[in-house]
Amino acid sequence: MHRGLKPLLAVAGIALVAGCAAPSEPQVTFYSHGNSVAVNPAQLCDATGQNCVQPSENTVGNLRVPDNDPLQISVPGEVAATPWQVAFIYRGTNGQELDGRSAVFRPNERHAYTLQVPPDGTRLEHVEVQQFSAVLTQGTDGGVDFGIGGTWILNIHE
């Protein structure tokens, strides 16, 4: 992943596959403190995990998010119509890198999400919107994991 961060993909082994005709690239918009950035997908495959779009250049957005300010995330209908979640990395006041995830949003449950970090001086560093595909794999705990079909990435600057 970028800047040496551990990957946040929910299922290991999901790889980009150069594909043929795929839909146009939906953008996810990130907004904080009066500024916004629209981000193209770093990965985008159809529901079966096939026919992936070759990533365009500049697939990582950058945005300044002041401490204690929320990050608002808006996804287009193509993403909201499928299960999706927000994964993030932040740095605690002691310098420790921490990660977290939102709940998984059901299809058509919502088009937006507001990410708030703890108000104790914690700094948000990296955010990914992850769109799930219909691909299932055996989970390490005996259950099943869904593959990630689309990923939109944002790096945070102070």
Rank of each mutant, 00 (worst) to 15 (best):
V17D: 13
A18N: 09
A80P: 00
V39W: 14
G34F: 13
N35Q: 11
A47L: 15
V117G: 12
P41M: 08
Y31W: 08
A81R: 02
F88Y: 15
E125P: 00
N58C: 03
P76N: 04
Q85T: 00
V11C: 14
S56N: 12
A38F: 02
A103V: 10
I14W: 13
C20K: 11
A10I: 01
C52R: 07
T93G: 03
A12S: 11
V75K: 03
A47W: 13
G61K: 13
V117F: 13
V129M: 05
V144C: 06
L71I: 01
G147F: 02
T137A: 14
R106C: 10
P7K: 07
A112G: 04
L98D: 03
L98K: 08
L8Y: 12
A80L: 03
G149A: 07
G49E: 06
S56L: 15
S74G: 08
G121I: 02
G61L: 14
Q50W: 03
Q72S: 08
V28K: 08
G149K: 13
V53P: 03
V144I: 09
L98H: 08
G143I: 01
A12Q: 10
A112P: 00
T114D: 07
G100W: 11
G147H: 05
L5K: 06
L44K: 06
D145G: 00
V129W: 04
V65I: 13
G49D: 05
Q54P: 06
Q27R: 12
P83K: 11
A80E: 03
G121Y: 04
R91M: 07
Q138K: 09
V104S: 01
V104Y: 06
F146L: 07
C20F: 14
L71T: 00
V127N: 04
F105R: 03
P55K: 04
I148C: 06
T82H: 15
P118T: 10
F132C: 00
Q138Y: 07
R123P: 01
V129Q: 02
P83D: 06
P76Y: 10
Q131Y: 05
L16K: 08
A21T: 10
T140H: 09
V11G: 05
T59D: 15
S24T: 06
A47C: 08
T122G: 08
V129A: 11
L115G: 07
H126V: 04
P41D: 11
H126S: 08
T140E: 12
D67I: 14
L136T: 02
D145C: 02
V86N: 06
T140I: 09
N62C: 09
T93Q: 13
N68V: 05
P83F: 12
N68S: 14
W84I: 02
S24W: 13
S24F: 13
Q131L: 15
P119R: 10
V104K: 02
G92H: 12
N108D: 10
Y90E: 10
G100C: 04
G77W: 09
Y90R: 14
Q96W: 01
P76V: 03
P23I: 09
G19Q: 10
L124M: 05
R101K: 11
L44P: 00
D141L: 13
C45F: 12
V39T: 01
G13H: 02
S36Y: 01
I14E: 14
A81S: 15
T140Q: 11
D141A: 12
P107R: 01
G143V: 00
